[in-house]
């Protein structure tokens, strides 16, 4: 990739990352008592924006979203991606798993959630992630559900 194309890639990544996901995070952060439905709606848009996926993407499983993001990035179908990313020994993760972990860390940071890796690691879907966020925020405020 030429230098000029890489500069455009950097600009695109920065724009995609800073604008939409942070805007969605801000909406969630501005409503500390928001309902689960509200959180889920905006969190879903946050996730799709982070992965640079279309806003009408209906997948709920985060690994599947990460995989779709990779397919689009690398312009490969699922089978070709599986063949390309055979990874690695057990102490390394496939790219879709890494993308999922990075997303979960980003959610934790951008929504100012307390660290709870044991619970966070159990999250598999955007719906479960929204439930996690709501519970984590209740832990902040000490309110019951």
């Amino acid at each position: 990739m030429e230098i000029g194309e890489r500069r455009k890639l950097v600009a695109r990544l920065l724009a995609a990352s800073k604008k939409e996901p942070l805007a969605e995070a801000e909406v969630i952060n501005s409503e500390p008592d928001a309902s689960f439905i509200f959180v889920e709606e905006h969190l879903r848009q946050y996730v799709l924006a982070k992965y640079m996926l279309p806003p009408d993407c209906k997948k709920d499983n985060i690994l599947a979203l990460a995989r779709l993001s990779l397919e689009i990035t690398l312009q490969l179908d699922e089978n070709a991606l599986r063949e390309l990313d055979q990874a690695t020994p057990c102490n390394h993760a496939k790219s879709e798993t890494t993308k999922k972990v990075l997303l979960l860390y980003a959610v934790q940071r951008d929504l100012h959630l307390p660290e709870n890796p044991a619970q966070l690691s159990k999250v598999k879907t955007v719906t479960e992630l929204a439930q996690y966020v709501c519970e984590a925020r209740r832990g902040f405020t000490g309110k019951n559900s």
Binding site: R6, R7, V10, L13, L14, S17, K50, M52, L74
Partner: peptide, 26 residues
Amino acid sequence: QTFIDDLNELEDWFLQYEYLLQISAD
């Protein structure tokens, strides 16, 4: 240095990871 500048400008490993995946396509 142009690669170093790109990566350091992205700051966040989430974006740096995406950058590396995208340039790998070539």
